[in-house]
Design a protein around this nucleic acid. Structure first.
Length: 720
RNA sequence: AGGCACGUAGCUCAGGGGGAGAGCGCUACCCUGACACGGUAGAGGUCCCGGGUUCAAAUCCCGGCGUGCCUACCA
């Protein structure tokens, strides 16, 4: 009503997109252009004076039945001296004036354009400009009507064939070329849209769009990822009036009444009599509003508008709308227009455009194409949580998703991993998470607490930025490769040591705490399994949905513990590498000798000897005096520490030399770019000091490793 | 036709000026007391091509080639 009163809604005769199957008008958006192979027909229109003809080109010969003129470009040299200014329309014999308009392209077709104002939007404009009649020759089902002469009653495609055949028979078809062009199709039923002259209701969107555009330009509404603002801008700038009449049976009926005297009454209440003639014979408009028009009011109409309800006050404008790009115009832009118009404020602060799931070849999934992946089947197969996690992991900004079942299976495995980690955790907690306070934390305690806090901070930051894939992968990495791979293995030692119940309890405490935080962090991505496990976690109350969200406590980040763990993991990795590369059975415990000139490293490793021994499967752990390595041993170099595995008896010296060669070659490849940089004077002069320092430290570390490995290699060679 | 993306391991994809990453797949070994939907170790890359900017380019700029999407009335 308000829009009508302000002149922003009007009724008018225009060419609209008509679906001959749905029997309704469509907006420009609902007409989807699709490339089709059509024909370009060159048809001879004879001059009235009988001397020759003018050839016009058209893709839709059947519309010639509604022609009311032929247009040429006034600049066209071919048509400078025409024999006559009047043509005779073939088949029907109607006389057609030749009009001159710069709109006609000199390059396309024959340079002569047949004008059918009732069946083409541009012809309609031309018709208005030149005062031509508009003859509508088709009915609402796409059949030729009584104005189409002998073609009356034929379907539009049938009519085309007949028209072409008849023209050919009369020698009026000059030629016929194959022609690719984009043709509108009904978004609902894919029927070819027919542009038809018709009286409909329209919204004058210009002023509304200008405001909606400005809101985004001024940042009152932010579109994420930003690249979509271009698209939004483009569309808002080139927008045409919006046809909102629909001849369908669902939707809001347009509140307009027609009186026999010709008066149109638009009213909030049902009018009793015509204000002009007093007549009581009023008929309400049968058309309904486009559903997108109605739903443009959604952000406020759902909260009691036009009343100023408490809900409306509190929740408008909303914080974030999450949607797909294909809805950006249909709905988002229109909610913006209406929100600003009626609420004086944008409907949402952020619009988050998420990725669209496409099929394996990048096609948009659609039922009619038959390339849909049924989420119910997938969830049945891999689990709802796995499916949801996959979508989150794939949801990188600005990119669509080609769904891959392998990835879903990978996340199913992840869910399973968590389930098993939970079994381990719950089994060991023995119903108690509270005991064990007071003992100083072990290295693995400090480390995992530090890591879970870093992860929490990372997840929080990622979610704030709508980088759901970053959040998902941070959690995956932490859960599997830190919590499960390292922490759970390390914590087994205190957990299984019944001789030290206090330490055992302390271990339980940390385990329970970290696992509890992990469940809370995972919950948004994996709601079902985490809730199930939460219910079994001792000390957890209520639903995990309501549990406190871990944001990451900076004071619980412990860089020293992380550095020490890094050393421990490197040494364990070195022993395992030797075991794997030398083909030593996993079950065989190995003697290990360490050598280091760094007291701090030695201290850490000595204090962690039990963990080191357990995870690297070590039979005996000894320290060598510097410069006196064990004679026959495989070796590895980590930062600050050299690792020896004496292999007397079962050692294969050639294999060890080969292993060291490979390792040295790898380091060589790593060190070269850094050495080159340091040899570059420009780098030393212009690069930031910390970058130069970093390169130097890197070169020093790798060089040290290489030296130690080379020394080992030399010793091994002596035994060959 | 115009616009916007994308081209990184065999496949699916992150990253985005200073040490090439993940999942799956692959190779070898292992049913180790949470987990074989698993563990340990490993192989695998001209970051599409060509220029440019820079001390430094997979990353920024320009031009190609290829792919996808969106918009569009050339009858």
């Amino acid at each position: 009503m308000r829009l009508y009163e302000e002149g922003l809604i009007y009724r008018g005769d225009y060419i609209i997109n008509w679906c001959p199957r749905c029997h309704t008008a469509l907006s420009d958006l609902e007409s989807e252009h699709e490339e089709v192979q059509g024909g370009l027909y060159y048809i001879r229109y004879p001059f009235k004076n009988g001397r020759g003809h003018l050839t016009v080109a058209t893709t839709r010969p059947e519309t010639m039945l509604g022609d009311t003129a032929v247009a040429i470009n006034p600049e066209d040299p071919r048509y400078k001296d025409l024999a006559d200014d009047t043509l005779v329309l073939p088949l029907l014999g109607r006389e057609l004036p030749i009009i001159r308009d710069a709109y006609v392209s000199l390059e396309f077709g024959s340079g002569a354009l047949k004008v059918t104002p009732a069946h083409d939007p541009h012809d309609f404009d031309l018709g208005r400009k030149h005062g031509l009649a508009a003859i509508r020759v088709m009915d609402d089902s796409g059949r030729i009507n009584e104005l189409g002469g002998t073609y009356a009653g034929l379907d539009r495609f049938e009519a085309r064939k007949r028209v072409v055949a008849d023209l050919e028979a009369q020698g009026l078809l000059e030629k016929h070329e194959v022609h690719l062009h984009a043709v509108g199709h009904c978004y609902r039923c894919k029927t070819m849209v027919e542009p038809i002259l018709s009286q409909q209701w329209f919204v004058k969107v210009g002023p509304l769009a200008a405001e909606a555009l400005q809101a985004v330009q001024e940042g009152r509404t932010r579109i994420v990822p930003e690249m979509w603002t271009n698209t939004y801008h483009e569309w808002m700038t080139n927008i045409r009036d919006w046809c909102i009449s629909r001849q369908i049976w669902w939707g809001h009926r347009i509140p307009a009444w027609y009186c026999g005297c010709g008066e149109v009454i638009v009213s909030r209440t049902t009018p009793q009599a015509c204000p002009k003639c007093g007549g009581a014979e009023l008929k309400q408009e049968t058309d309904v509003l486009d559903t997108w028009f109605s739903s443009a009011l959604w952000p406020f109409s759902t909260m009691g508008w036009p009343d100023q309800t408490p809900e409306l006050k509190k929740f408008y404008p909303t914080s974030c709308l999450v949607t797909g790009f294909d809805i950006l115009f249909f709905w988002v832009a229109r909610m913006m227009m209406m929100g600003i118009k009626f609420m004086d404020q944008v409907p949402f602060k952020d619009v988050c455009i998420h990725a669209l799931v496409r099929d394996a070849s990048g096609q948009k999934m659609s039922k009619s194409k038959g390339n849909v992946m049924d989420p119910l089947i997938i969830m049945d197969q891999y689990g709802t949580d796995a499916f949801r996690y996959t979508l989150a992991a794939f949801a990188a900004q600005g990119r669509d998703i080609k769904m891959s079942e392998e990835r879903i299976a990978g996340y199913r495995n992840f869910v399973n991993k968590i389930w098993n980690a939970a079994r381990f955790t719950l089994m060991n907690l023995q119903g108690d998470r509270e005991a064990g306070a007071g003992l100083p934390p072990t290295l693995e305690d400090r480390w995992i607490i530090s890591r879970v806090n870093r992860t929490a901070a990372e997840v929080a930051a990622a979610i704030d930025d709508y980088r759901f894939n970053d959040a998902a992968s941070a959690l995956y990495q932490f859960t599997w490769h830190e919590f499960c791979d390292w922490y759970l293995e390390l914590v087994k030692a205190p957990l299984y040591n019944h001789d030290d119940p206090a330490r055992q309890a302390a271990a339980r405490r940390t385990l329970g705490e970290v696992f509890s935080r992990l469940l809370r962090l995972l919950h948004p991505f994996m709601p079902f399994v985490t809730e199930e496990l939460w219910q079994r976690l001792p000390g957890a109350e209520g639903s995990v949905m309501l549990a406190e969200w871990p944001n990451g406590e900076p004071q619980e980040v412990d860089p020293q513990a992380e550095a020490q763990m890094e050393l421990l993991m490197a040494v364990i990795g070195a022993v395992r590498n030797i075991r794997g590369e030398m083909g030593i059975a996993p079950g065989q415990a190995l003697p290990v000798v360490l050598m280091s000139h760094e007291d701090s490293a030695r201290q850490v490793l000595e204090s962690q000897a039990p963990r080191l021994t357990a995870l690297a499967k070590i039979a005996s752990l000894d320290w060598a005096v510097e410069g006196e390595p064990p004679a026959q041993a495989a070796s590895a170099a980590v930062a600050g520490v050299t690792v020896y595995v004496p292999l007397t008896g079962l050692v294969d010296f050639a294999a060890e030399v080969a292993r060291l060669d490979k390792e040295i070659a790898k380091l060589e490849k790593e060190i070269t770019p850094s050495r080159n940089k340091l040899a570059n004077e420009g780098f030393l002069a212009k690069a930031p000091a910390e970058v130069v320092e970093k390169e130097k430290a890197k070169v020093a570390e790798i060089a040290s490793k290489m030296e130690r490995l080379a020394a080992s290699r030399q010793r091994m060679r002596a035994f060959m």
